[in-house]
Design a protein around this nucleic acid. Structure first.
Lengths: 355, 355
DNA sequence: CTGTTAGCGCCTTCAA
DNA sequence: TTGAAGGCGCTAACAG
C-alpha cells in the first residue's frame, strides 16, 4: 500500500488509478467492470494500482452515467411492528439476491410522510418502490406510475388505478376466524378494529359481518369500535366496550397485532381471564403466540412471503412487465387456546379442523 | 400541465425547465435551491416551467457534484428482531429530522455479509455508517474510519481501535438479574447464552459470574451453554441442560430475546411451568412480556434510545467531531413473575426493589 | 487490446 | 440579477 491519495478532495478516483498504472481511464473502467478485452498483464497492473491507491468505485458517478442506481425504496408504516419488519425482510432478501439495496422509511400511517419520502426516494433515483400505503388519496402517485415501477403491499391504495399489489385474503381470514368464534357458541362478539378507511379494515370487517350474518347475528353497534391506531387506543376501546354495557360480550375480535395487544392488556387490567371469562382472537400472528399464554388463536399472515412476492413483482416490472398485477396470499387459521379450544370452556371438540 | 417531456431518455432535466422558461440552467438551479438573487418575476416563470414539464431534481447528479448524498448506511443483525428494529427506528427518527435517508441491510451475524454491505454502501457514498458488528475481526474498517464517520451499536467490534460506540451496561444488567435470582434462593442457575465471542456475550457472562461468585456459587460447566444463534438452538441447548442432569437447575438465565424464547419453548415442551417448576429470566424485554404469561422478569435495554444516540453521535462526527466516543446506557431490571416473584414460590417478599 | 472524446444532470466559479 | 464554461467520476461510442 503506497499512499492513500490524501489529495485535495478526498477519495481516489479512477483517474488516480489510471495514472498509477500508466494506462487510460477506460482501461481501468474495463478492469473494474470485468470486461474480457483486457490483456492479463494489463489487468494485473491495474489491479495492483487499485490496491495501491486504495480505490473504491463511486457508485453515484456510475449511476449518473448509466441511469441505474441499484436501489429500491420501501415505505412501510412502522418498522418496529413485526408484521412490517417481516415484509421488509422478505423484500430485502430478494433485493439482495439481485444486488439491490433498500432505502427505507416509516410513514406511521401518515400520508404526508409517505408523500415526502416518496419524493425524496424518487429524487434519489430509486428504480422502484414498494409501499404500504397510508390512508388517503394516492392520486399523487399516478403520474409517477408511468415512469417508475410501483408495488403496494398489504392494502390497496385509495384513489389509484391499476396498482400492482400483494395482499392477503382479509375477508376470508376474518370470516374463518369469526366462524370459529361462532362455532364456539359465542354470539355477542366485540370488534376492535384499526383504521377503518384502510382496505384491510374494510375487508376484515366484511368477513366478520358475513360470518355474523350467516349465523343470524346482527352486529351491535356498541360492540364495534374501529379507528384505533395504537395499543393504547385499542386498550381504551376495549375497556369501553367491556364496561359500557351491562352484559359483557363473550368474545373479542381484534383486527391486527396492535389491536390484540391493546385488547389483551385491557382484559388483564379488568381482571378478566382469557379464555375463561372471555375469548379473544386476532388477525395476524405473534412469534410468542404459541409459547406464552393466553395462547392466542389467530389468523396468520405470511408477512415474509408478502415481502418476497412484492419484491419479485417489482423486479418483474423493472424488467418490463406490465403493472396492475394482483397477488392475494392465503391466510391460515391457527387455533390455539384463547378462543376457548382445549380449555375448560371448549364447546365442540373436534371443531379445530376448520380453516 | 403541458407535456411531460417524453423525450428520448425519460425524465425532464433542469435543461428542459430552462428551455421552457426561457432562462439559463443556472437560473433554474438557483430557484430550485432557494437562492435569494433571483427576480421575483423570473422565479415565478421558472416555477411555472417546473410544474409544466413535471420536473423533479436528480439527487444523484447533485450528489456527484456537491459530494453529499444525504444518506447513511445501517447494518444490523436482523430487522425481524424487535431489538434491532427499535434501534433502526431510533436512527431513522434522528436521520429524518436532518433530511437524511437510510440504506439498510441485515448481516445475520455474518461478517462476510457485513463486509459486503459495507462495501456497497461506501460505494454508494453514504456519509456515515451505523453498524451492529458481527463477530470477527473488523480490521477491514480501520482504513475507512479515517474517511467515513462510523458508529457501532450494541457491541464492540473486534480488532478495531478507537471505535465510537453506543452500548448498554451489559455486565451490570446481568449482575442485577442474576442477583435477583440468587436472592430468590436459587443456586443452580443454567446459563443459555448467545454467540460467546460478541462483547455482549462476554460482558453478560461476566456479570453473571460476578454475581454467582459473590454468593459463593461455583459455575457448573454443564449448566452453561453458549453459542446459540436461533430460537431452535436455544431450544435444544435448554433441553440438553434440563435433561442431561439428574437434578434440574432451579432457574435459567437467558442472554437475549431469542434465547429466552428458545428456553421458554423448551420448558413448555418438557411440560415445565414457569415459575412453578423453574424460574426463567432474560436479558432484553418483549412488548408482550407484561401482558402474556409467564410474565417475564427481564433486564430491559433502551433499544430505541440506543439508535437515537448512535445517530446523534454519527451526525456529530459528520460535522467534524472526533470519533472514539463511547456511550453506555443503563439497563433496567423489570421484575415480573417468571423469577418467582408474586408467584407461589416467592421466597423473600419485598425483594423486588433491587436495581 | 487500448485510448480519446463526449456527456450523464447538476452546481461552482467567474464574468457580464 | 443573470449567464457561460468547466468539471464532479464514470462509461458509451467510437476510433486506433
Amino acid at each position: 500500500m503506497i499512499n492513500r491519495n490524501d489529495s485535495p478532495k478526498g477519495l481516489p478516483t479512477i483517474k488516480d488509478v489510471a495514472a498509477a498504472a500508466g494506462v487510460s481511464l477506460k482501461t481501468v473502467s474495463r478492469v473494474i467492470n470485468g470486461d474480457e478485452h483486457v490483456r492479463e498483464q494489463t489487468r494485473e497492473k491495474v489491479l495492483a494500482a487499485i490496491k495501491a491507491v486504495g480505490y473504491q468505485p463511486n457508485a453515484i458517478a456510475r449511476s449518473l452515467r448509466v441511469k441505474k442506481t441499484y436501489t429500491i425504496g420501501v415505505i412501510i408504516a412502522d418498522i418496529t411492528n413485526n408484521f412490517y419488519s417481516a415484509i421488509v425482510r422478505g423484500i430485502e432478501d430478494i433485493a439482495t439476491s439481485k444486488n439491490y439495496s433498500l432505502l427505507i422509511a416509516n410513514s406511521d400511517e401518515m400520508l404526508k410522510k409517505e408523500k415526502q419520502y416518496t419524493r425524496i426516494f424518487v429524487e434519489k433515483q430509486v428504480e422502484g418502490m414498494i409501499i404500504v400505503p397510508a390512508g388517503g388519496s394516492h392520486q399523487y402517485l399516478e403520474h409517477l406510475a408511468g415512469h417508475l415501477p410501483l408495488v403496494f403491499v398489504d392494502r390497496q391504495p385509495e384513489d389509484f388505478k391499476g396498482a400492482s399489489i400483494v395482499k392477503v385474503e382479509n375477508s376470508q381470514g376474518a370470516y374463518n376466524l369469526t366462524c370459529h368464534l361462532l362455532q364456539h357458541g359465542y354470539r355477542e362478539i366485540a370488534y376492535i378494529g384499526h383504521i377503518a378507511s384502510l382496505t384491510t379494515g374494510e375487508e376484515r370487517f366484511a368477513g366478520f359481518k358475513k360470518a355474523m350474518e350467516e349465523y343470524g347475528q346482527e352486529i351491535k353497534p356498541f360492540l364495534v369500535r374501529m379507528g384505533s391506531k395504537t395499543v393504547m387506543d385499542a386498550f381504551r376501546a376495549t375497556q369501553e366496550v367491556l364496561t359500557g354495557q351491562p352484559r359483557r360480550p363473550q368474545a373479542i375480535f381484534a383486527t391486527n397485532n396492535i389491536m390484540v395487544l391493546g385488547a389483551l392488556r385491557a382484559l388483564t387490567h379488568l381482571g378478566l381471564e382469557v379464555p375463561r371469562d372471555i375469548a379473544l382472537v386476532g388477525f395476524d400472528d405473534f412469534e410468542t403466540a404459541d409459547t406464552c399464554r393466553p395462547r392466542l388463536t389467530v389468523v396468520s399472515q405470511p408477512a415474509y412471503a408478502m415481502g418476497r412476492e412484492a419484491a419479485i413483482m417489482l423486479f418483474r416490472q423493472m424488467e418490463g412487465a406490465a403493472s396492475g398485477q394482483e397477488i392475494t396470499l392465503p391466510t391460515e387459521l391457527i387455533i390455539r387456546e384463547s378462543c376457548g379450544c382445549l380449555g375448560q370452556f371448549q364447546r365442540q371438540p373436534g371443531q379445530e379442523k376448520i380453516s
